[in-house]
């Protein structure tokens, strides 16, 4: 029972961590509270549904399509909405309100096109695998494998490569980065593409596992944002750690209390962290004058 619980928490944590890392890429670099990231998630799930069920594409291609759709949508949002605001020097509040508007408009467009009801991508009983006394469906195994490959690679990439340093540099001090010759707009487009693709990946896998409705994006986005704060804003390993922690806590809630209290307790965790450790688990040491900001 405990092992099964851990396994479910792991699967859940993998998806939260993917979403949280994608969100962190965008948030850390642009400082935009990108709520519409949740809409990119939803759009990916629905495109996957469209390709798989309506157009009868093979599974793998449908997932690729969903991921590409999310990336495209993310970049479009940056080019059409955020970049003009950034050039104007608009405040963070303005980007946030725009993002809320984008989220509402996109999600309702999806609901208009596909209907409000829950959709299942894999009707029937999924084949399961048994491993060390734990039962997982094949999709769940795929979720773990994808996360196990992508997460360490990405975190290492961001830590070690020049690209990762550029992204961290832009996050630390965008003006200095630009003055040194970095094309901020190109970096922003890149992080929107990569971050949204990660959301798309999490969305397609989760949709294959448990289905979706037009409203799925928001709770997933919020959980990712909580994972980012719990793990440590400004880092890239933080959201991954936070994601797994939340995954475990959530499956513990499902087991011990009731699935209905998941959201309440997730945000309870957030409030606890805001009170006692607002810098998160993994955040680096800072000088005082920085943390005051």
């Amino acid at each position: 029972m405990l092992l099964q619980l851990l396994a479910n928490g792991l699967v859940n944590g993998c998806m939260i961590a993917l979403m949280a890392l994608g969100y962190a890429l965008i948030y850390n670099t642009t400082r935009i509270f990108h709520v519409a990231h949740g809409a990119a998630y939803t759009a990916a799930a629905y495109l996957c549904y469209l390709l798989l069920i309506v157009f009868k594409w093979p599974l793998l291609l449908a997932v690729v399509g969903g991921v590409a759709a999310a990336a495209l949508l993310g970049v479009t949002m940056e080019l059409a909405v955020y970049a003009p605001l950034y050039r104007r020097g608009a405040s963070d509040l303005i980007s946030l309100i725009s993002s809320l508007g984008l989220y509402v408009a996109l999600v309702n467009l999806i609901a208009l096109l596909f209907g409000n009801e829950t959709k299942v991508l894999r009707p029937g009983v999924e084949k399961t695998c048994r491993l060390l006394g734990v039962i997982l469906t094949r999709i769940q195994v795929a979720e773990v494998v994808v996360a196990a490959v992508l997460l360490p690679l990405l975190v290492l990439f961001l830590k070690r490569t020049l690209w990762g340093k550029i992204i961290r540099g832009v996050r630390d001090n965008p003006v200095l980065a630009e003055v040194l010759g970095i094309d901020l707009m190109a970096v922003r487009i890149a992080v929107f593409a990569a971050g949204s693709a990660l959301a798309g990946m999490a969305a397609c896998l989760t949709a294959l596992d448990v289905g979706m409705d037009p409203q799925v994006g928001m709770p997933v986005l919020l959980t990712a944002a909580v994972a980012l704060i719990v793990g440590g804003v400004g880092t890239f390993e933080g959201p991954v750690i936070g994601g797994f922690l939340l995954g475990l806590i959530q499956s513990l809630i499902v087991w011990k209390i009731s699935a209905q209290w998941t959201d309440v307790i997730t945000f309870g965790v957030l409030i606890v962290f805001l009170v006692f450790r607002p810098e998160g688990i993994a955040s680096r040491r800072r000088r005082l004058e920085e943390s005051a900001a």
Binding site: D92, L222, D263, F267, I271, P278
Partner: peptide
Amino acid sequence: GDYFVLATLGFQVIIFGVLYN
């Protein structure tokens, strides 16, 4: 500011959850 926004979002979700459950 961002933390405050997220905290209010969280509070909204918590209150809804409490009313619902």
